[in-house]
Design a protein around this nucleic acid. Structure first.
Lengths: 197, 197
DNA sequence: GTCTATACCAGGATAGAC
DNA sequence: GTCTATCCTGGTATAGAC
């Protein structure tokens, strides 16, 4: 299979997914029709079905892009030097979310959809596992270096704390999506500082 | 309008909404067809359209039930005596959620849908406003009685802290919905204790 | 008030020309 | 590889009998 053609295929799929994402943002996954995606992409029905076999395949690709985009350098989280404070760590996660999506509404839509769609559920579960593991690892190192805890103690505490840090990120997304007058900066600066250290 | 007939109307609507809720939980709002709601309710199409004019009206009624059910005695939050600790307060909110819904997945579905549906957005925004106000009021009183802050200082701090407490509730719902191995009790007992006092 | 049957329409997917 | 035209399913809502 020629490399150029394969690259072309990937690019085209990506174009289509981006067009679909713009539609999904406005109308949600199920209420967006193929006709809208076709029109938004500037392509034709036949062309699109050459790259995807069904609408649900497009939904899955779009959700994957939404959910994974902001996690590029997650693995470096526990290796940063100097180590950021916990609240600073959460701030970084949220900033990544904002950089990658402009508005976190898309990710809340994915979560809602995942409640009834096994493929999306698996996708989200996988992401959350990675995210939680990374947070635990970071916290573990932080507790050791900052408070001199032994490794086992640091680990125990990290496992307890991690879900709350995860909630701080998820809560940001939910409140940003649903509060008309949500104050992003206040949340990021002052509210997050209330997290444990 | 006769009282009995009016009560009958309310009861029937409620029956229909409950049937719809069971369907929505399985398939989501948009992917559930009227045929499924009709079958689940045991009624007929004609009967249902006598009580609701459209599917979206049923969705709105169902979402309203999901989103408001767990907030019955929210106003008493700041008047409890003795005052619960902040973490205990959050625990109470989450327990209310679990009592009212069994699984919080439904509420995550509503949030996702609200991202693209103005009527649901307004519904959720209203609820969150009430919830945040109640939390601020509670925290304000807690900071005064527990730490002896002046009313203005207590208010300032409460406004800063409230979004994070809200996140603790929202994060519970999201993680419970999406983590296969989410440990509810660990979150409620140990994790929540990490919240500021 | 409720049921059955059905009209009507929109949506996803495809066939076949270019 | 891509476009147009179209098929056909399945969905919402209603009409009319009981």
């Amino acid at each position: 299979m020629p490399k150029v053609s394969e690259q072309h295929r990937i690019d085209r799929r990506d174009e289509i997914v981006d067009a679909a994402l713009r539609c999904f943002r406005r109308k949600g996954f199920q209420s967006t029709s193929m006709a809208e995606i076709i029109s938004e992409s500037g392509l034709s029905a036949g062309a699109i079905y050459g790259y995807f076999t069904s609408k649900s395949e497009i939904i899955l690709a779009a959700a994957t892009k939404i959910v994974t985009g902001w996690l590029r350098d997650l693995d470096h989280l526990s290796q940063l030097d100097p180590m950021p404070e916990p609240s600073e760590m959460v701030r970084g996660l949220v900033r990544g979310l904002l950089d990658s999506l402009r508005s976190p509404a898309a990710i809340v839509q994915v979560w809602g959809e995942a409640a009834t769609d096994p493929a999306l559920l698996e996708l989200c579960a996988g992401i959350f596992d990675r995210l939680r593991d990374a947070i635990v690892l970071y916290l573990e190192r932080w507790q050791q270096s900052e408070h001199g805890l032994s490794q086992p103690d640091a680990h125990r505490l990290s496992v307890i704390q991690a879900p709350l840090f995860l909630s701080a990120v998820q809560g940001f997304a939910v409140q940003d999506t649903l509060f008309a007058d949500f104050d992003r900066e206040a949340y990021l600066t002052t509210s997050l500082n209330q997290l444990p250290r």
